[in-house]
Structures are given as structure tokens and as C-alpha cells.
Amino acid sequence: MPHFLMNLRHVPDDEAEEIRALFEEHGVDYYETPPSRWGISMGGFWTRDGAEAERARALLATYQQSRSDTQRAEYSRRLAAGEVPSFGQRLMRRPLTVLATLLAVALILGLSVAPFLSW
């Protein structure tokens, strides 16, 4: 029976490549299903054996913790270097996009709260 290891929806290509390399390096017998063109099926990494699935999940947990630490450190470095745009910088760079987004958020919030405010 197949054992699901990881969803590939919204996974960057570099992360998927690193996971494939990790599985290959440790000899994990896995297979991959690609996400569908229209986003109906998610795609993912799978194994056929329960014991192999547990071993792969342990490897994934270690890898994901390491990747999380690396990504957080990179974000902190970019933040300290001033490479992460602030709200004001985004507003100056793309005023229509930012204002349209704020308007959409306000509209959705208003529609969500309106039934509770009118007695």
C-alpha cells in the first residue's frame, strides 16, 4: 500500500530537487507523482513500504528543520542588508497594486463582518 510522504503543491523547485537528492543519497525507495496541470491533484513523494516511509519521514523532518533554519537566516541577512522592501517601498514601487490589494482586503472583511453588525 502506498504511503504519502510530502505534498508538492507550492514547493519551490530547488527544495524538491534537494529532497530528491536526499532520498537518492540515503537510498530511499520512493516515487513521485507530479501535480496536475490545473491544480486538481497535488502531486507528491510516496513510498510503497511502511518501514521505508518512517525512515523517509525522519529524513524529511531533519531536512525541513535544516531548511527552515537556513531560510530564516537568509531572511534575517536580507532584512539587515535592507534588501527586504518595507510597506512604504512597496507602495512607492507599485501604488495601484498595493491600493487594490488593500481595497480587496477591506471589501472581503466588510462582507464577512456585515451580517454580524446589522441586527
Rank of each mutant, 00 (worst) to 15 (best):
S36R: 10
F45I: 02
G27Y: 07
Y63M: 13
D49R: 08
E18Y: 01
A73M: 07
I19C: 03
M92R: 11
A16H: 00
R9C: 05
A51D: 15
V98K: 05
R94I: 03
Y30M: 05
L5D: 06
P35Q: 10
G82H: 06
P85I: 12
V105T: 14
D14K: 05
G50D: 11
L91N: 07
L5F: 03
S41Q: 08
I108D: 00
H10T: 04
T33A: 08
E52Q: 09
G82I: 10
R93Y: 08
P34I: 06
H3P: 00
H3Q: 10
L103R: 11
G44W: 03
R93V: 04
R20L: 05
E52K: 01
G110H: 10
A56N: 07
Q89T: 06
A61Q: 13
A114F: 14
A104R: 09
V113D: 05
Q65Y: 05
E18P: 01
V113C: 06
W119P: 13
Q65F: 07
M42T: 06
L8H: 01
E25V: 08
L99E: 13
F4N: 02
Y31A: 05
M92N: 12
T70Q: 10
S36V: 01
E74K: 06
R55A: 14
D29S: 10
H3D: 02
L109F: 14
F23R: 03
A61R: 13
R77C: 00
A61C: 06
P85Y: 12
T33R: 12
M6H: 10
R72P: 00
R55D: 07
A61E: 15
L91P: 05
R9T: 14
A21N: 12
L102N: 10
R48I: 01
R90C: 14
R72Y: 03
E32R: 07
G50E: 13
L103W: 12
L107S: 13
V28R: 02
R78W: 02
L22C: 08
E17T: 12
Y63R: 12
E18D: 15
R57H: 13
G82F: 03
L109E: 07
A80F: 01
R37G: 04
L8V: 02
G50L: 11
